[in-house]
Amino acid sequence: MNGSSDPDDSGDGGGALEIGRYTRPFWSALSEGDFLVHECRDCNRAFFPPAPVCPHCGATEVEWVEASGEAELYSFTRQHTAPPGFDAPVLLGLVELAEGPRVLCAIEGEYGDLELGQAVELVATEYDEGFDRGDLSGEAFFAARPVHDRSE
């Protein structure tokens, strides 16, 4: 339990993932192949993960906007040992969306083919790992995929 009396408020108490009131629109859009971020109505800056307060200016007037999915690989690593339920090695990276926010996600592809600054796109993927996703079981997840030519 997270201590909240609001059944839609998942909090951050750990355990299985839940769809909370701030993330429900994100997961719904992702299942349709769209990636949403929050944008502040006061400072007009986008941010991720979603939250009721803008991390840039502290305003509470935020709205969902569809991100293009276009991004640049900011950093990446290969994790040789993975926790139970995950196949090793795991490629993880921080990608910077065209809209500004940086997102930590799995990277599709081969480690040796990745380069800092490389164009990538966020894509909806099936989540087939053995981790208990709670309310998110059966929902899409996301990863970054290298883009070799944006005109494709």
Score class of each variant (00 low, 15 high):
residue 4 S to E: 09
residue 4 S to I: 08
residue 5 S to P: 05
residue 6 D to T: 03
residue 7 P to L: 04
residue 8 D to H: 13
residue 9 D to N: 09
residue 10 S to P: 08
residue 12 D to E: 10
residue 12 D to A: 13
residue 13 G to N: 11
residue 14 G to Y: 09
residue 16 A to D: 09
residue 17 L to C: 01
residue 18 E to K: 11
residue 18 E to L: 02
residue 19 I to D: 00
residue 20 G to K: 01
residue 21 R to W: 14
residue 23 T to N: 11
residue 23 T to K: 06
residue 23 T to C: 09
residue 24 R to Q: 11
residue 25 P to S: 06
residue 28 S to R: 11
residue 28 S to D: 12
residue 29 A to I: 01
residue 29 A to Q: 01
residue 31 S to C: 10
residue 31 S to P: 01
residue 32 E to M: 04
residue 32 E to N: 06
residue 33 G to V: 04
residue 35 F to E: 00
residue 37 V to E: 00
residue 37 V to N: 00
residue 38 H to I: 02
residue 38 H to R: 12
residue 39 E to F: 04
residue 39 E to T: 10
residue 41 R to C: 11
residue 41 R to D: 07
residue 43 C to D: 08
residue 44 N to E: 13
residue 45 R to G: 06
residue 45 R to Q: 10
residue 50 P to W: 06
residue 52 P to D: 07
residue 52 P to F: 15
residue 53 V to Q: 08
residue 55 P to G: 09
residue 55 P to T: 00
residue 56 H to E: 08
residue 57 C to I: 02
residue 58 G to Y: 14
residue 59 A to G: 14
residue 60 T to I: 04
residue 60 T to V: 09
residue 60 T to H: 12
residue 60 T to M: 09
residue 61 E to V: 05
residue 61 E to G: 13
residue 66 E to G: 14
residue 66 E to H: 12
residue 66 E to T: 15
residue 67 A to V: 00
residue 67 A to S: 15
residue 67 A to T: 03
residue 69 G to E: 00
residue 69 G to Q: 02
residue 74 Y to N: 04
residue 75 S to E: 04
residue 76 F to C: 00
residue 76 F to W: 06
residue 77 T to H: 02
residue 77 T to S: 08
residue 78 R to Y: 09
residue 78 R to I: 06
residue 81 T to W: 07
residue 81 T to L: 06
residue 81 T to E: 05
residue 85 G to E: 08
residue 85 G to S: 11
residue 89 P to R: 02
residue 90 V to C: 05
residue 90 V to G: 05
residue 90 V to A: 01
residue 91 L to C: 10
residue 91 L to E: 01
residue 92 L to W: 11
residue 93 G to P: 12
residue 94 L to C: 03
residue 97 L to S: 05
residue 98 A to C: 05
residue 98 A to S: 10
residue 99 E to M: 12
residue 99 E to F: 14
residue 100 G to P: 09
residue 102 R to S: 07
residue 102 R to H: 13
residue 103 V to D: 06
residue 103 V to H: 12
residue 105 C to Q: 05
residue 106 A to T: 14
residue 106 A to S: 15
residue 107 I to T: 07
residue 109 G to H: 04
residue 109 G to M: 02
residue 110 E to Y: 12
residue 111 Y to W: 14
residue 111 Y to H: 12
residue 113 D to N: 11
residue 113 D to E: 13
residue 115 E to A: 15
residue 115 E to Y: 07
residue 115 E to R: 15
residue 116 L to A: 07
residue 116 L to E: 02
residue 118 Q to R: 08
residue 120 V to T: 03
residue 122 L to D: 00
residue 124 A to M: 12
residue 125 T to L: 04
residue 126 E to D: 15
residue 128 D to I: 04
residue 128 D to E: 09
residue 130 G to V: 00
residue 130 G to W: 10
residue 132 D to P: 15
residue 135 D to N: 05
residue 135 D to H: 13
residue 136 L to G: 13
residue 138 G to M: 01
residue 139 E to R: 12
residue 140 A to Q: 10
residue 141 F to Q: 06
residue 144 A to G: 08
residue 145 R to Y: 06
residue 146 P to Y: 04
residue 147 V to I: 14
residue 149 D to T: 07
residue 149 D to F: 11
residue 149 D to M: 01
residue 150 R to K: 06
residue 150 R to N: 02
residue 151 S to F: 14
residue 151 S to A: 14
residue 151 S to C: 11
